[in-house]
């Protein structure tokens, strides 16, 4: 279902959705863009290309308690998650969430992720690609599912995709703001918008054939050269919308008899990641760990699901302090040379 809304009505609409849950949107503070709690549209920055951390943090927080334990066993901690409406999510990040859904909601459904997913409404918003965006190469520049509502800014008005029954419920809070009447001009405007968006990409990257190039380049010295540069800081994994790895620890309280079992983001870039009891490390070298990450994103995932586990958001490009990212690694493998 696609509806039409006047641009000036967005603010009124967002005020009404606060009835469902707390409103979060992209805000800019001291040059950094994050999803923060907001009261109204005026506090949001809808022009920013990306937030530092993707919206995965709302569905899968950096650290949370899974269980409280005592002598009698483990009691799960569920039910205390606030209802939230996230506004301004870009197509790449919705694709990232769709990949998370596959992982957490299919075989052995994760109740913690499921609860947050259920209580978080995703209101997507169209975006303007910057020099780091590469979603056109990962085929994630547009999105057809995974959101509750999606707002495409067509300058004069919004086209609003309704993606779920909950999204439709939000529309019903202010039905007078939406119209079902779309005409020929709306279609022409939309096709024009798509063409314009496609012309905005500046990053030249071509991921076709990556699985074969990875297979051929498994033993390439390029990996060692990249490994020498890598700092193993793990920032790439924290900012990647499809990184899901975590660690679990028991935190002891009140004299060892009670405590919590907590889960927090882990990174395959860390040395301990593949360490087993007895001291054997399956990925002792930085180059091995780096290769695992890129193999997972650009080879293995394609083999399994027919698309890369990279949504082209550009966060690794923006974040890595030594310029190891999807663009430089895929280019290095193709050209068998690590660029400066």
């Amino acid at each position: 279902m696609i509806l039409k809304m006047k641009k000036e009505d967005l603010s009124t609409f967002l005020d009404s959705v606060k009835e469902w849950g707390e409103l979060r949107g992209p805000t800019k503070k001291e040059g950094r863009v994050t999803y923060s709690r907001v009261d109204s549209l005026s506090q949001m920055d809808l022009k920013a290309a990306r937030t530092i951390i993707p919206p995965k943090k709302f569905l899968y927080p950096p650290r949370f308690t899974m269980f409280d334990y005592d002598q009698d066993g483990y009691t799960e901690r569920l039910g205390d998650v606030p209802k939230r409406v996230l506004f301004g999510i870009h197509p790449c990040d919705i694709h990232g969430i769709l990949i998370m859904d596959k992982l957490f909601l299919e075989t052995y459904k994760d109740p913690y992720y499921a609860e947050r997913r259920e209580k978080t409404l995703l209101l997507g918003h169209s975006c303007i690609p910057d020099d780091k965006c590469m979603c056109i190469a990962t085929n994630t520049d547009f999105v057809a599912e995974g959101f509750d509502l999606f707002f495409s800014d067509l300058k004069m008005f919004y086209l609003v995709w309704v993606g779920s029954t909950k999204g439709h419920d939000l529309i019903r809070l202010k039905p007078e703001l939406f119209s079902r009447e779309l005409d020929k001009n709306d279609i022409l405007n939309y096709t024009e918008y798509r063409k314009w968006k496609n012309s905005q990409f500046k990053t030249k990257i071509d991921l076709t054939g990556m699985p074969d190039i990875f297979e051929l380049g498994y033993g390439s010295p390029v990996w060692d050269q990249l490994g020498d540069k890598c700092l193993s800081c793990g920032q790439c994994t924290m900012v990647c919308p499809t990184c899901n790895c975590y660690n679990v620890v028991d935190e002891v309280e009140l004299g060892a008899l009670e405590g919590t079992r907590d889960r927090f983001w882990d990174s395959c870039m860390f040395r301990e990641y593949s360490l087993v009891a007895g001291g054997h490390n399956f990925r002792d070298k930085r180059s091995d760990r780096l290769r695992l990450w890129y193999t997972h994103k650009l080879q293995a995932f394609i083999g399994e699901f027919g698309k890369p586990a990279c949504v082209g958001c550009g966060r690794c490009v923006e974040t890595c302090p030594v310029e190891i990212n999807v663009v430089t690694v895929s280019t290095a493998l193709k050209e068998q040379e690590v660029g400066k």
Binding site: L103, F104, T107, Y108, D110, N244, C245, Y246, N247, V248, D266, C268, Y273, S274, L275, V276, F282, L292, T295, H296, Q299, A300, F301, G303, E304
Partner: peptide
């Protein structure tokens, strides 16, 4: 095989080998 595992159900990522998880 032996691998480091934190979940056993294909979520935590530690036991990944290419596209497979040792645990599932």
């Amino acid at each position: 095989l032996e691998r480091r595992m934190k979940c056993g159900v294909g979520k935590c990522g530690h036991c990944a080998i290419e596209y497979l998880y040792t645990c599932i």
